[in-house]
Amino acid sequence: MIVTNIEYIPGKKITQHLGMVSGNTVRAKHVGRDLMAGLKNIVGGELKGYTELLTESREEAVRRMVAQAEAIGANAVLNVRFSTSSVAAGAAELFAYGTAVVAE
């Protein structure tokens, strides 16, 4: 499965465009992480727990998007976009979407 955020695959010919596919997930970190992040807010710096949270969520969202693409018979997803938002305090939502295609 090829996943890319450009609109074509160099050196390959796209034979079929199968429509939009998407993957989303909402995740939360346990309260210890939230407390650590609250403390970190005082001194600044990277919130490792939340970086991890977002990385996990992004991977999950892409996995689900790819699962949708596979389910409709595509072998590549083009023009992938991500959108992130915090739905509730401490819970992050990650959404990935793109166009499923068949490339040769």
């Binding site: 034979t15 199968l18 429509g19 699962a67 949708q68 295609v101």
Partner: peptide, 15 residues
């Protein structure tokens, strides 16, 4: 450019 169509995505992948 190839053919364009919208296939139906099965339910239950994102939830």
């Amino acid at each position: 450019m190839g053919a364009y169509e919208n296939r139906t995505v099965p339910e239950g992948i994102n939830v």
